[in-house]
Amino acid sequence: MNTLNLRIESKTERLSYVREFVSDAAKKFGFDDESIGKIALAVDEACTNIIKHAYGFSPQHNIDIKIVTNKEIFEIIIRHQGKLFDPKLVKTPDLKDYIDHPRRGGLGIHLMRLLMDQVEYKILPNNKCEVHLLKKLQVGK
């Protein structure tokens, strides 16, 4: 098992650095360009949601990003201490309704679910919250 860690400030200007960090790790792990793009976008969406909703754009907080790899599993764990978030409250949007009534917002979590093999939210003691994003490397592809 290998791990990599990155701590960023809760600022949108750090998103490009996060994408680079995750893309480099995904490339070294053996993902193709398409999968690397999907993983980087999913992590961007998770961090954007934390900056926006958990921390309300307040820039003095931290977001901890940990990449854990084990055999064919590539997992990104994103931890924050902002406003707790109940993912059960976020329904998968009805895309037909979205198209009939375009509006902004609500697409990030849906995109994460489409891009990754598994998305999980965990609430830990001490008001910590984690988003787990998992993608499997398709061996032989």
Partner: peptide, 16 residues
């Protein structure tokens, strides 16, 4: 080179 849902949201906000 890249678009996230925040970028898509801008198009969504003005299309109507």
């Amino acid at each position: 080179n890249y678009i996230s849902s925040a970028g898509l949201g801008v198009f969504m906000a003005y299309i109507e």
